[in-house]
Design a protein around this nucleic acid. Structure first.
Length: 428
RNA sequence: GGAGACGUGGCCGAGAGGCUGAAGGCGCUCCCCUGCUAAGGGAGUAUAGGGUUUGUAGCUCUAUCGAGAGUUCGAAUCUCUCCGUCUCCGCCA
């Protein structure tokens, strides 16, 4: 959520910045509602103050055995006005809230201009795509032939866009996860284990709700005996539970930065991507991901994003996977992000760079929704900044390892860094 | 799943319709005192939002005692729903 004060103070400036990401702010509606908000809120609060003061007098008069009937009459005339004013004020604030919660973050000054994916800027490349002296297969051909990947089984037990992995392939995915977690721990991230289902407050905190409900899986409730009025959703990323660990907290400045890493499955409905990436492990309803989250001082978030992105790069480098670093343009960054870097890994099976990590600085956008603040000395609490990124998307890393390390005979060499996690096995 | 107890500020803990944003204690901050240390004395110590304002200063108003709704002129206190914690029994990885 944007700062409502900033919005009031410089509505046109905010609209201007939002237009860079292709978002048209409804300036007229906001202005009109804001005027009403002020009127109604002031009126309601004034009436409340009057009511409170008369009520206090009733108390006093009663204690002294005086006649309270005139006071009761007085407050009675107030009552209706007050109720009306309160309702009006609440209604306007609800409307404003609804608009504001749907407004995306402002792009950071260093976020490149542009409208779509086409305008993203390549920052650097690492590693040379290997030249194969045979026809490189994609990960599906590579693993199906060995009986390690079974799409039909996944469809049978669940549906399309799920997968069943077996044997060395299943183990390789686990090895990748362990390797990533251990590596991030060395960089000072505390490993956390978190729920895979979260409530609406958590999803609002990180910005998935109210706008992107259709991307999420909602848990159906048992009509008969579920009196619980909380709706739970499967997490689309560990960002949600991990970042929400600090929701509502006031941290001490000395505690910052808070660095956490967690591994979870992620669940996405992939609504609106029906025809896309239907083959293999690239786009699944359920996939594994290791996520890094940093809660930082507002002056440190820019460098924290660089650092965290670097931590994601380390994984790719240690695995020897060629990749490129992209700065997403204003039109392509996510709703809550001010700046985003994507890491794209080279996939020989398709001869393309594919997104394998997305690292973003949300500045105070999530913090404001989360009410996560810190206190410097005796000062007032101020909002933290949040930064997070995948380190990495495990399923896609699995694809990348398979395709980049394949041999002509259909075997796959295990990268050196992973061998300890594979029990010393060098080739599968 | 059954039975019972409970949820108050950073923490402990009073309060059981009005004078309570909330006693008291602990902790913390500042000051005084005391060769050092320990002890003692004094003051302060929630958050959010609004109005005013160049201002995140000051002043002022509103809201908040697990959450939400209700009763009432007035709710931490009464009612309802939900969430959570603890104890006992049952079940269970």
């Amino acid at each position: 959520m944007l700062d409502p004060k900033k919005l009031r103070a410089d509505l046109d400036g905010v609209a201007e910045q939002l237009s860079k990401r292709g978002y048209k702010l409804d300036v007229e509606s906001i202005q009109a509602l804001e005027t009403q908000r002020k009127d109604f809120q002031v009126k309601a609060q004034t009436l409340q103050a009057e009511r409170n003061s008369i009520s206090k007098n009733i108390g006093k008069a009663k204690a002294q055995g005086e006649d309270i009937v005139p006071l009761l009459a007085e407050v009675d005339t107030l009552k209706e006005q007050l109720e009306q004013a309160e309702q009006a004020s609440e209604a306007v604030q609800t409307q404003l809230e609804a608009i504001l919660s749907g407004v995306p973050n402002l792009p950071h000054v260093t976020t490149p201009e542009g409208q779509s994916e086409e305008d993203n800027v390549e920052i650097k490349r690492w590693g040379e795509p290997k030249a194969f002296d045979f026809d490189a297969k994609d990960h599906v051909d590579l693993t199906e032939a060995r009986g390690w990947y079974d799409n039909d089984a996944a469809v049978k037990i669940a549906s399309a866009r799920f997968s069943v992995l077996k044997g060395p392939l299943a183990k390789l995915q686990r090895a990748l996860t362990q390797f990533m977690l251990d590596t991030h721990a060395q960089h000072g991230y505390e490993e956390v284990y978190v729920p895979y289902m979260v409530n609406q407050d958590s999803l609002r905190g990180t910005g998935q709700l109210p706008k992107f409900e259709e991307d999420l899986y909602k848990i159906a409730k048992h009509e008969e005996h579920d009196t619980n009025d909380r709706d739970l959703y499967l997490i689309p990323t560990a960002e949600v539970p991990i970042t929400n660990l600090v929701r509502g907290d006031i941290l001490e400045q000395e505690e910052l930065p808070l660095k956490m890493v967690g591994h979870t499955p992620c669940f996405r409905s992939e609504a609106g991507s029906y025809g896309r990436d239907t083959r293999g492990l690239i786009r699944q309803h359920q996939f594994e991901k290791v996520e890094m989250v940093q809660i930082v001082h507002p002056e440190k978030s820019t460098e924290a994003l660089e650092e965290l992105t670097g931590h994601a790069e380390v994984i790719l480098q240690q695995l020897g996977l060629p990749y490129r670093l992209m700065a997403l343009c204003a039109g392509d960054i996510g709703f809550s992000a001010a700046k985003t870097y994507d890491l794209e890994v080279w996939l020989p099976g398709q001869s393309v760079y594919r997104e394998i990590s997305s690292c973003s600085n949300f500045e105070d956008f999530q913090a404001r929704r989360l009410m996560t603040r810190f206190r410097a000395g005796k000062g007032k609490p101020q909002l933290v900044h949040t930064v997070n990124g995948s380190g990495l998307a495990v399923g896609r890393t699995l694809v990348a390892v398979l395709e980049n390390y394949q041999n002509e005979d259909g075997t796959v060499t295990i990268p050196d860094a992973l061998q300890p996690y594979m029990g010393g096995v060098k080739i599968i």
